[in-house]
């Protein structure tokens, strides 16, 4: 059983995950960020693989990615950083990047590396379902990797059910029609959307992301789905405050 599945069994709600940009704000901060977030009580982590053209991300993550790339981050460096702390990290790790990064690196080699450094789940928001079914489902399985699909308020019920069937990690519920980093509170419309998805009685765990930035938004979202991912708000925080006060940031949100 994967660490993630085990986690979902033990803790069915108020799951809190953080997305961070590898190699940001400093090249070697990847390690301190992971250790800091685990110590602060985060349940699982999204390791952001910085990309030059992150289509689904907002300005905060794009800018942090550009800085990380300038710092010299690349997939080999990230895998090396993860390898170093492999035996010290217990929470599940997810890699989030873009399809082109995997393909150019060599998809098989990418999967092999992920497995060897302890990544067990992938989020590649621009991978088409048809490619997944045709090629990558089998390849990921070979390396013990599961894939996460995103759904949005516009995703049809039929498609959501198909995604639910194909999912063995969790469904990433995009909380609004938005790129990452959107601000504000959770609207009635979003709550209606969460409730609609809940009414489908899906088998998968539901984790919300995009626009979760505070204790308030986290608490509201957790009343409707199993947990949430905090991305841009964290990236902004470490960009401004460095990696030493991560604990405070996390406690502020999860209490």
């Amino acid at each position: 059983m994967s660490k993630l599945t085990q986690l979902f069994k033990e803790k069915p709600n108020r799951l809190c995950s953080v997305y961070f940009t590898s190699g940001y704000p400093q090249l070697n901060d990847t390690v301190s960020v992971i250790k800091g977030l685990e110590a602060a009580g985060i349940d699982f982590l999204e390791v952001g693989l910085p990309y030059s053209d992150p289509m689904a991300d907002g300005p905060t993550i794009q800018e942090s990615s550009a800085i990380a790339l300038k710092n010299g981050i690349n997939l080999d460096v990230i895998f090396k950083q993860l390898e170093e702390i492999k035996n010290q990290v217990n929470i599940p790790l997810i890699a989030m990047g873009y399809f082109n990064q995997m393909v150019r690196y060599g998809s098989e080699k990418f999967c092999e590396k992920c497995q060897s450094v302890g990544i067990e789940t992938l989020v590649l928001p621009d991978m088409p379902m048809i490619e997944y079914e045709k090629t990558y489902k089998a390849m990921f399985a070979k390396y013990g990797l599961s894939n996460v699909f995103l759904i949005t308020p516009q995703t049809s019920e039929e498609r959501i059910r198909k995604i639910d069937e194909m999912t063995d990690a969790f469904i990433y519920v995009v909380a609004s029609s938005s790129i990452t980093g959107a601000k504000g509170s959770i609207s009635e419309k979003q709550i209606a959307y969460f409730n609609r998805i809940k009414s489908y009685n899906l088998k998968s765990t539901l984790i919300a992301g995009f626009g979760i930035s505070s204790k308030d938004t986290f608490d509201t979202v957790c009343e409707h789905v199993n947990g949430a991912i905090i991305g841009s708000a964290f990236v902004k925080y470490v960009g401004a405050n460095g990696v030493n006060t991560i604990n405070g940031f996390v406690k502020e949100i999860i209490g």
Partner: peptide, 11 residues
């Protein structure tokens, strides 16, 4: 070719 797009653009 194909359509390598985030779910957000799919509809």
């Amino acid at each position: 070719g194909g359509a390598y797009i985030p779910e957000l653009l799919y509809p």
